[in-house]
Computed example of a mutant assay.
Amino acid sequence: MSRKSGVLLIGHGTRDELGTQEFFELGELLSRRCGDLPVESALLEFQSPTIPDGWNALVAKGATHIHVAPLLLFAAGHAKSDIPDAIKQCQSESNGITTDQSRPLSRHASIVQLAAQRISESLASMDSDPQRTAVVMVGRGSFDPCAQADMRLLSEIVRTRLSLPNVCTAFYAMAEPKLPTVLRQVASTGRFDQILVYPHLLFHGRLYQAIVRQTEEAMEEFPSVRFHYTDYLGPNSYVSDAIADRVLGDTKRKAKQFPSVAGPTKNG
């Protein structure tokens, strides 16, 4: 039976106006990236359209199979329970709609490339001595040990790719070490003239503002060290490419690895 597919892009949601705008901008980029495949954007919390809103919009467009694309950097509670539970509820209220859920963006090549680009551009503008410069990569943080390990591994990949001698990982919440602790430890060694903070976040919002504030507090505590921070990932074509590959590329790879059982065709 032929299926008409659609993509449901699910963001976490934020009360930040700019962050919300950036989410929908990314949805537009993904829609253009997916061509004729319909894309609807939905939010897990705080705002509309909700997940049922996005689901129903795709069904109204004739979708009989929905690719669920969680806009999450790492696999934790939202990817493992909150979003699947919401999708099951939607599915129970629809007839004959099938789904699959793509993996979080994690260490997709396009995400690694964009993170490395954010850091390398900032380092170039600082005119820094690599041996006297530390890079601190900051993740949102999660109680999930796999998500924590994923962030640490991302830092190591970026360190290797850019041949940086001094890179460490910090978290904003729910995991150790916290950003203020790491900034204090690095700045107090006396080995570094400059510290660059990279917030590994998708959009503007409360978390980004908090990371900037904690960095500025470190500036006041250690006036002899120059602190800088990069931009976050943002609504960028690298991010939309990563989502599209998670949705379409993973689906094709699964189909090739686990072909469906069917009757004989004309060609046998």
Rank of each mutant, 00 (worst) to 15 (best):
E45W: 02
A124Q: 15
V136R: 01
V239N: 00
G11K: 01
D100G: 11
R33P: 02
F192Q: 10
S142Y: 09
K254F: 15
V186K: 07
M137K: 03
S260G: 13
F258I: 08
I243F: 02
C168L: 08
V158D: 00
E217I: 11
L72D: 03
G35D: 06
P130R: 13
Q185V: 11
C90Y: 08
E121F: 06
P49S: 06
A187L: 07
S224M: 12
L233Y: 05
T169P: 06
M174N: 14
P70N: 10
V135W: 03
S122L: 12
M151G: 05
L164E: 06
D231F: 05
R206L: 14
P104A: 09
A262F: 07
L8R: 03
G35R: 07
P84S: 05
A69T: 08
L248E: 10
I51R: 02
A218N: 09
E22H: 08
A255P: 02
L43A: 01
L153V: 04
I97W: 11
S120T: 10
L58H: 08
T14S: 12
P130M: 11
E156R: 08
D193C: 09
T181K: 14
G54W: 09
F143R: 15
N95I: 12
L37V: 13
A147C: 09
A42E: 00
T133L: 12
E45P: 04
D85R: 13
V68Q: 01
S260C: 12
S125H: 13
V39C: 10
K256Y: 09
L44G: 06
M1F: 13
A86I: 01
H78P: 04
V167G: 02
A115W: 00
D100I: 04
R253V: 10
D100A: 13
M137R: 03
A79L: 04
A86E: 14
V136L: 08
L8F: 11
D127N: 15
S163W: 05
V158F: 03
G96S: 12
D82H: 10
L114D: 00
P199M: 03
G6E: 02
I97H: 10
P165L: 10
V239D: 00
T14V: 13
F24G: 00
E216F: 08
R213C: 07
A175K: 05
A79S: 11
F192W: 11
K252L: 15
G62D: 10
L233E: 02
T181S: 13
I157S: 03
I211H: 01
Q257N: 11
P180F: 04
E17V: 14
A170K: 04
V247S: 05
V261C: 11
F74S: 07
P264Y: 07
Q194R: 15
E221C: 11
A86R: 12
L58P: 04
H108R: 14
L179W: 06
A109T: 13
P264W: 08
I10D: 01
P264R: 13
R246W: 04
S142V: 03
L196D: 07
P49N: 06
Q131L: 14
A187E: 10
D144I: 02
S92C: 13
L44Y: 02
R33H: 10
